[in-house]
Simulated scan of single mutants.
Amino acid sequence: MTTPPQPTPALTDAQLAALCAPLGRPVSSERLAGGLFAAVHAVTLDGGRRVVVKAGTADESRLLTYEHGIIGTEAAFLRLVHATPGAPSDVLPELLHEDRSRTAFPGDAVVMTHLDGALWFQVAADAERAGAPLDAATTARVQREVGGALARLHRATGTAYGYPAPEAGLARTTWPDAFAAMIEAVLDDAARWGIEVPAFAVREAVVRGEQALARVTTPRLVHGDLWAGNVFVDPATYAVTGVIDGERALFGDPSST
């Protein structure tokens, strides 16, 4: 079995300075908590502007198939949302700089605007620990706001289905073909990592659903990784202030992903 991936190392001050150079000079930074894939830093530039730098792992041998090129996907995701009328650009970061030269850092990187607020799951956990958990009405209100943002996100459309990064090779002209390719990639990755899955049954299910998938005629933008850890809220009012981490976005049918 392949050994599991390790967290992407933190960026050095020199790397942050090089990635932020088109925008200003970093005067302070802090690494933000996150997953294994990317190193994420909040950076304050001279002049007081706050930005977020996200840099993907340079060890591409440890990636799942669909993860190839996904820092570029995040950049494309943000550009498309901010260019689509009615899309939720009010709660998504703005792309400020994209660096795929791999000269400042051995992986791809993006610089985005910094969003206000606190992570929804952290706010909920803090309230639970304080003995005053969020009530059902508050939780439902946050969920409705997130749902509204997603509905607006789906106004953005593409020209192909599946994962858009060319490096992944998982874009197709129809949704059934893209869905099948995505599933095959997961099965291949499972085999490579020594994970036992009922591959035959999975493929049979994909074939059974082909006609339903074929009814989808518009490749709509889907976030692909939306959970309470990727939603910012105002800790005082619980209003949604941000949706982050569009790196795993794809084009497809929002109801079947």
Results as ranks from 00 to 15, higher is better:
244 I>K: 00
142 V>N: 02
7 P>H: 14
236 A>S: 14
115 L>H: 06
152 R>A: 14
256 S>V: 14
106 P>Q: 12
233 V>I: 05
190 A>C: 11
257 T>K: 08
135 D>E: 09
84 T>C: 08
213 L>S: 07
105 F>R: 12
242 G>D: 12
189 D>W: 00
129 R>P: 01
26 P>Q: 07
237 T>R: 13
250 L>R: 07
109 A>I: 02
202 V>F: 15
23 L>K: 01
223 H>G: 10
59 D>F: 09
83 A>W: 11
49 R>L: 08
246 G>R: 08
70 I>Y: 13
239 A>F: 04
138 T>K: 14
177 D>H: 15
216 V>F: 08
140 A>S: 13
7 P>N: 07
204 E>D: 14
203 R>P: 09
153 L>F: 01
215 R>Y: 10
12 T>P: 01
221 L>A: 05
249 A>C: 05
238 Y>L: 12
145 E>L: 12
192 R>E: 12
81 V>R: 00
248 R>N: 03
31 R>S: 06
213 L>T: 01
68 H>F: 10
239 A>M: 03
233 V>R: 09
118 A>G: 03
6 Q>H: 03
186 V>P: 05
224 G>V: 10
82 H>E: 04
38 A>L: 01
64 L>Q: 15
141 R>W: 05
239 A>R: 11
193 W>H: 13
226 L>V: 12
20 C>H: 02
92 L>E: 05
60 E>H: 13
35 G>H: 00
222 V>C: 09
53 V>N: 01
132 A>R: 09
216 V>Q: 11
72 G>Q: 13
210 E>C: 11
190 A>W: 03
152 R>S: 14
192 R>T: 15
68 H>P: 11
5 P>I: 03
183 I>F: 14
243 V>Q: 07
154 H>S: 14
171 A>M: 12
